[in-house]
Design a protein around this nucleic acid. Sequence first.
DNA 1: CTGAAAGCGCTTACAG
DNA 2: CTGAAAGCGCTTACAG
Lengths: 340, 340
Amino acid sequence: MASTINDVAKLAEVSRQTVSRVINEPSLVNPKTLEKVQRAIEILDYHPNVTARLLVNKRVKTMGLFMPFSADQVRQNLFFATLSSTICQICSQSDFVMQMFTSLSREDSSRFFVKLFKEKQVGGLILTCPSVSNDELIFLLSEKIPFIIIGRPGIMSQQINYVDVNNVQAGDLAIEHLIQYGHRRIGFLNGPANMTLSADLNKGVITAAQRHGAKLDIRESETDLTLDSGYHQALILLKSDQRPTAIFTADDLLAVGVKKAADELGLSIPSDLSLISGTNSGWGNIFPQELTYIDTQFERLGDIAAKHMIRFILEEQPSNLSEVLPVRLVLGQTCASAHE
Amino acid sequence: MASTINDVAKLAEVSRQTVSRVINEPSLVNPKTLEKVQRAIEILDYHPNVTARLLVNKRVKTMGLFMPFSADQVRQNLFFATLSSTICQICSQSDFVMQMFTSLSREDSSRFFVKLFKEKQVGGLILTCPSVSNDELIFLLSEKIPFIIIGRPGIMSQQINYVDVNNVQAGDLAIEHLIQYGHRRIGFLNGPANMTLSADLNKGVITAAQRHGAKLDIRESETDLTLDSGYHQALILLKSDQRPTAIFTADDLLAVGVKKAADELGLSIPSDLSLISGTNSGWGNIFPQELTYIDTQFERLGDIAAKHMIRFILEEQPSNLSEVLPVRLVLGQTCASAHE
DNA sequence: CTGAAAGCGCTTACAG
DNA sequence: CTGAAAGCGCTTACAG
């Protein structure tokens, strides 16, 4: 059996409180005793039982990360891989632990979160939008579960902590860039209609369009952010009469889908078709030329969320987080002047 | 404050042992008492404290998943995303929890694993090769840490549990396929030299080559399994004198790199260059035509490992796991007959 | 079917 | 600087 604090105390001929002190506040211990205890710890290969410790001091140094998608979707979306590894890294720096959860079949997810927290499995949760509906959000608030949303929550409230990328700005910058290049017929592959991401991008697109009057023809298609749906929607757009001369995609996986469709139709990028992506999660590297995209620095989302959660758990101060990160245009070689 | 078992006992006017029974073994409780207690649980919104429970019954229903790579690499490699989400799913079915760890800067990883286990943070670990060196493996064994390797460990031993894909067979099948198509000059983009994956693929390649005598010219290049290294190595191969008529890549991300290089050089697949990948993690969907690849079903690795770990933790029987999953060739349209 | 006793491995005041 | 006492929230035998 593994040795306990009592074993160490016995071997070192001190009380277990002293051993506890050696571990938690060595400066309060007489150097000679300290050494004696440390040697005993060494000999017995003693490791304090985290569980027992938790039971008394109550800081649950664990956070849950909820990724609502199926294995297949997580696999497609590099965003989630980035998120989880970033959060992991931050956790390990502070001796925290990250638990990951994907979609749960058994029960609705918000009940599961409440259970996790109340059972003291986790000290708080990081939820990726749109994993939670507004009803669920309200439920979580009413149950006082500490959580941070990554993305923009569907309802706003002082009590809701979130960190998001400025997708309105992203949509605006992207369309503005295409307009500057003279494009007037623009395809827009957006995400699913129920995501705030999609709503925000759309808002940005409209903002940019309105700045330039009514001569624009912007055609929005809904996708589910997979390669396949990007490919299929792009085919439809590119085969239509008066096909768009440029396409803006919500993310770079969709952009890859567009490229696939363009290749198939013998359209080359950027001479026949300009392409700009609303983010770059890594798929962009596939392009022979550099992809033009909006840099959303979404790695920072995980970083900010995790650090905030750690601070919250350690201090239990319900400080507020509502940050919207600015974005910027990164010029590649997939956009060119429109010519008809 | 959250309510405890004592609060429930008081409200229901029973002892806390009875409450405990209601939760763990309701059949042993008088139906009337049962109902009374359940109502009290409802009213107080009682959730048993997992920590306290653990302290006494000692089953740590948590497993650690170690992904040794940097955030960047995890992002590139869909293999890891698939693995983590699969393991997550399996865990949630058995009320287990998965903790994820990426590379740790602070200390060498095996010491960290020992700590995790001895502190009772995790009941066992799933390690992805080549996250652990042979020395570390030996150390873990000596410390009696329960772990499962995904991939083939560098040293073999009765005590080492692992599950792997038959990469020898994968290499063999791939080269055999190319030979059948008449290819004699074949490029082979392998993984890093220190991975057992690379050694196994190589062994398979050699096996297939030897079956067909010495007329083959197989050129192996080392990559680090990133898109970039695949692209660069492919460029070198394809620009060389007597360029290969076919390329076999260790994985599909490398295959994408080859495609990028081929596009750049104006070589079309499969008429100018046949391409076959040693696995398909999802990148293959990018190809305009179906990618020819070896189906390694690596989703199954996570599934098998997680289920075995759960069984181990629940039963504490040190049953053995050493499984090597067979692979099969999946015909796409990226291979064609060689012609010079 | 139910409860009194003891204990899981630790920490937090409180004395001294 | 150190230890005796009490307790964190639960479960596991053992009586009855």
